[in-house]
Write a protein that binds this DNA or RNA. Structure first.
Lengths: 110, 110
DNA sequence: TACAAGTATATAGTATTACTTAATAACGTC
DNA sequence: GACGTTATTAAGTAATACTATATACTTGTA
């Protein structure tokens, strides 16, 4: 499939928020989960710019914990603002998704 | 609803391609159709940057015709490359859409 | 000891895209 | 002629994902 970068804009951050909302997790693990989901080309750098942004916008709580497998991990959880942002993300996604569905169905003559 | 700009990236161009594929049309009319679809905040300038890009990437045929309502209109139709790009757009959309659905459904415990 | 590989975080710089704003122009009508 | 609608264009901005790279800790192994 062709490059999906542009279409991921605004979507990837929502995915990260959703993954964090499932329970405490850290950057490297989030990257792996995104790749498992199917976004196989997502790399650490991309996820870290997102988590940095979440920190900067104060949407997450942070707790640093040691790891037996490498350097310390920064665990994230959503705070109230983060949950609000997540809800807003799904709202926007549902809106666009419904509009695109409308457009597509018109195409197929349904 | 909050600003959906970022989420429209990569999506709006696909919508324009789809609208053109329905039949010969021009920038101003495309803008109106997008607004009717629900993207009420889309303005001419945004659509023209997209049609300019389509021209530059040679995805459209262009025919200039006079209008009784104002200045001449530039009518667009999709060429073979444009249709390919449109198909690629829907492929990418279906992919991301299915992944997001997966993520959302896991959320709801379905 | 040295080195590679896996885990983990961080950051500077780039490309793409939608948006903002404004200019220009043709036409009808008041 | 002024104004509203139709219609195209262009310069500049902001946001985001990606590229590439650096750093550091642990384990295995040669």
């Amino acid at each position: 499939m062709e490059n999906i970068t542009e279409m991921l804009k605004g979507v990837l951050e929502g995915c990260v928020l959703e993954i964090i909302s499932r329970g405490e997790t850290y950057g490297y693990e989030i990257t792996q989960q995104l790749r498992e989901l199917g976004f196989t080309d997502v790399v650490e750098g991309t996820v870290y710019t997102i988590t940095m942004r979440l920190e900067k916008n104060q949407l997450v709580n942070i707790e640093k914990k040691p790891s037996t497998m490498g350097p310390p991990r920064k665990f994230y959880t959503l705070n109230a603002d983060g949950q609000e942002k997540l809800a807003s993300f799904w709202e926007k996604w549902n809106f666009i998704s419904s509009k695109l569905k409308e457009l597509k169905e018109k195409k197929d003559g349904k």
